[in-house]
Design a protein around this nucleic acid. Structure first.
Length: 471
RNA sequence: GGCGACUUAGCCAAGUGGUAAGGCAUGGGACUGCAACUCCCUGAGCAUCGGUUCAAAUCCGUUAGUCGCCUCCA
């Protein structure tokens, strides 16, 4: 197994990855809140986490990955996001909260599929695990890490020896209610305490409520990840993933409650993906253009172009989105696919050379997932003196991790109607005859006629070839 | 105010102490009736100031700018 160096937010260093159990990786990802569409900034994280998972598999690890689906939350009173219109719209159509959750959950996985993001081995909706949440909270109360106040159950952060393990905040400087849409909760003993179970909250219209030892209510927002992770992956987690905005307080609180519950260190590596920004800063649902995968498709972009856009950058660097850069990437992607499509099938696998390039690929990826460098290795392969069979082999091999659908795109194995093919062949022949006779007006007219049917032609040295135009 | 990160050519971006990968765009050329595709050629001294070193984009410190987080956007 090759060396895999990974940046760890916990230690703020790049360190060699070593799982708890030899050859096996337990990995947890904070999933989406399914009450609106995911924007492409959210999806950047899921793309990079997908690359991480696939690279671990590529190097031979047996990976088990779990993701939660947050389908409980203050769904009916979401006033801090501009997208509640969608929710209201759905309500006007007499849909329940669960139906809305179901709708956006499907939308999320549709987006993921288009971006070649593998579905985790386990995806668990929070509403499936209420008994587990309650059990964990009961244990925390029993062990003195939690208290009841004002109808809610809170985690007592003062009971921990170390609370700020992830974020290096300090108690004195931490400001409460920095955001003006947030009010201070007077029930808390310490300002960093957080709610484990609500029965009373400012969000009175909570639609989903469950019976609990503390009354009808619903779980706090941090308990779900700890509980679902421990449920499926046990008490020793290798990698926990998420966007950087989760570091504090979400992940900090997860560590607090999980380790208080378990009584030992919980997770060794914390993987955080930086944000996608637009001209105004962090991409969000409430400002600027609300960019989604279906919107990119409408604008004529293959979603995999966006995946490549993300892979060209490093996951720990803020990335600025613009259509100019996406256009660049689109051209790069198409050129790359063209080059691959032009490869023949000839040759026998040159094992030794193949290993050389695989080694380079692993060096790039093993260096804290340097995907940009890995793409360069792919370009190097195409430019190399390897035979076509070896090149194809390597492209397929790298694409197990990169998942840009390169060979599929290159093979354009679109099912083509036979009569259409005959039609195309016939007109191309006519056109070539016209070209021979220097009747270029007729030749161009035929090309236009073919274009209308979605057939694009190219005059190559080997003759005229045609393809179906994309979309 | 505190904490965290980022700053390399027109744009994206690699680089982890020895004299700046790659991609896109640009310009030039080959090919083509034209177009498209393809191929060849084409560029920066690394935000600032200072330090360490024989040697720094790479290490240390300063300043500036950009971004994120600081309790319910997971």
């Amino acid at each position: 197994m090759s060396v895999f160096n990974l940046y760890n937010t916990l230690t703020k260093r790049t360190e060699e990855f070593k799982p708890n159990e030899e050859g096996k990786v337990r990995m947890y990802t904070c999933g989406p809140t399914v009450y609106h569409f995911a924007h492409i900034g959210n999806l950047r994280s899921y793309i990079m986490e997908d690359v991480l998972e696939k690279y671990l598999r590529y190097t031979g690890y047996d990976v088990k990955r779990v993701m939660n689906i947050t389908d409980v939350g203050h769904l009916t009173s979401d006033a801090d996001s501009g997208e509640d219109k969608m929710l209201k719209g759905a309500k006007r159509e007499h849909k329940t909260v669960m139906e809305i959750a179901e709708f956006y959950k499907k939308a999320f996985f549709d987006d993921c599929a288009k971006l070649n993001i593998k579905t985790p081995d386990v995806t668990e909706p929070a509403t499936n695990c209420i008994p587990e949440f309650i059990h964990m909270i009961e244990e925390l109360l029993k062990n003195g890490y939690a208290y009841e106040a004002g109808g809610n159950v809170y985690f007592d952060t003062s009971k921990l020896e170390e609370y700020y393990v992830l974020s290096n905040q300090n108690e004195e400087e931490l400001q409460v209610a920095v955001r003006d849409d947030v009010e201070e909760d007077i029930n808390k003993k310490n300002k960093t305490d957080f709610v484990l179970w609500f029965t009373k909250s400012k969000f009175d219209e909570q639609e989903l409520k469950w019976e609990s030892p503390w009354g009808m209510g619903y779980p706090g927002w941090h308990i779900e990840c700890s509980s679902i992770s421990i449920k499926h992956l046990g008490g020793y987690l290798d990698i926990h993933c998420g966007g950087v905005d989760n570091i504090f307080p979400h992940h900090t609180n997860e560590i607090a409650q999980s380790e208080a519950y378990l009584g030992h260190k919980w997770c060794n590596y914390w993987f955080h993906v930086q944000h996608l920004n637009d001209q105004t800063g962090k991409m969000s649902k409430s400002k600027g253009e609300f960019l989604t995968v279906p919107l990119l498709e409408e604008k004529g972009y293959n979603p995999l172009v966006y995946r490549m856009f993300c892979l060209q950058s490093h996951y720990r660097k803020p990335l600025l989105f613009s259509f100019d850069v996406l256009d660049n990437t689109k051209t790069s992607y198409e050129k790359l696919v063209n080059k691959i499509a032009a490869l023949g099938e000839d040759g026998t696998l040159m094992q030794q050379d193949i290993e050389e390039y695989r080694k380079k690929f692993k060096e790039a990826m093993g260096n804290d997932l340097n995907t940009s460098q890995a793409l360069t290795v792919l370009y190097d392969v195409l430019k190399s003196s390897l035979d076509n069979a070896s090149k194809r082999y390597l492209i397929e091999d790298f694409d197990k991790v990169l998942s840009l659908g390169l060979l599929d795109a290159a093979n354009t194995s679109v099912e083509i109607d036979e009569s259409l093919a005959e039609f195309a062949e016939k007109l191309i022949e006519e056109r070539n005859q016209a070209r021979k006779n220097k009747d270029f007006a007729k030749a161009d007219a035929i090309r236009a006629e073919l274009a209308e049917k979605g057939i694009e032609i190219k005059d190559t040295r080997e003759g005229t070839v045609w393809t179906m135009a994309q979309r």
